[in-house]
């Protein structure tokens, strides 16, 4: 596979000591024709770290995520990533498979037999008390339940790096909060390295160990914010450290947007 200018290296699992960092991106540039979307983005995700990627609409967050998942290549820069599992914004469960077979799908694709893959999927569903929904088709599940199944499908791959693309974007406020807690619990049980793309500042502050703020197009990193608020599972929106992180993210976004307006005038 040839890339125009950038280089991509997918680490071969299992990662050795040399590849301890699941994601390292340097100087990532991406253009679509004359439209420059990403302009020299540097990004790292450390083992078992959750990095939230925040930025205005259309700034290239999802483009960056797709590069990490191997769906696109950068025009310039280097990207060194562990094999990643994607949880998309829409659950994208296969309507013809029940919840168990949807969770088992990545294992089947990787060559596991039906029985083996189903047993692994059942174990995952049982552990989070979703076993009774194992035989339900996606159209029989609520939106929140479908997203849970979608997350378990991403977990099933046992890949070190999880890419979550606006995972709660299509849900109502209450379900979103429930699911955020649920997801934080799951990540505490089975720690992974997570790259979370979101436009929700509060979500970023509640789940991220670090928050990377991208500016408007062509996007570069405008701020890197550490959230020192303890484990994500125990964070509340009113925690002073979360409130402080939210304020800093907002400030960075506002400054970046203002700069964009000044540049445009």
């Amino acid at each position: 596979m040839g890339y125009p200018g950038g280089s991509v290296r997918v680490q071969s699992p299992p990662s050795g000591p040399a590849a301890a960092r699941p994601l390292t991106a340097r100087g990532i540039v991406r253009r679509f024709g004359d439209l420059a979307v990403l302009d020299g983005v540097d990004l790292d995700v450390a083992p078992h770290e959750t990095v939230a990627l925040v930025g205005p609409s259309g700034c290239g967050k999802s483009t960056l995520l797709e590069m990490v998942c191997g769906l696109q290549a950068p025009d310039a820069g280097t990207l060194d990533a562990a094999p990643a599992a994607l949880m998309p914004q829409r659950d994208l469960l296969l309507p013809w498979l029940d919840a168990r077979d949807n969770v088992a799908l990545p294992l089947r694709l990787a060559g596991s037999g039906r029985r083996e893959a189903r047993a692994a999927a059942d174990a995952l569903l049982d552990r989070v008390e979703l076993g009774r929904f194992a035989r339900s088709r996606p159209d029989e599940l609520s939106g929140g339940m479908r997203q849970r199944v979608s997350f378990l499908r991403a977990l099933a791959t046992e890949r070190e790096l999880l890419c979550l693309d606006e995972p709660f974007g299509a849900l109502d406020a209450i379900t979103r909060e429930e699911l955020r807690h649920w997801l934080a619990e799951r990540l505490e049980e089975r720690p992974r390295s997570v790259l979370l793309v979101t436009h929700d500042v509060e979500e970023a502050a509640l789940l991220g160990d670090r928050v990377i703020v991208l500016g408007p197009r062509p996007a570069g990193v405008v701020a890197r914010i550490s959230v020192d608020a303890g484990p994500a599972r125990r964070r509340e929106a009113t925690d002073p450290a979360v409130v402080d992180a939210r304020r800093r993210i907002h400030d960075a976004l506002r400054t970046a947007m203002r700069g964009d307006e000044v540049a445009a005038t």
């Binding site: 599992a85 994607l86 994208l92 694709l109 791959t157």
Partner: peptide
């Protein structure tokens, strides 16, 4: 998007045809 998701799981063209 279904095909792209399967691509991230390493699915071959034949697997995308069979599963999706």
């Amino acid at each position: 998007d279904l095909g792209r998701l399967l691509q991230t799981m390493g699915a071959s063209r034949r697997q995308r045809l069979r599963w999706v």
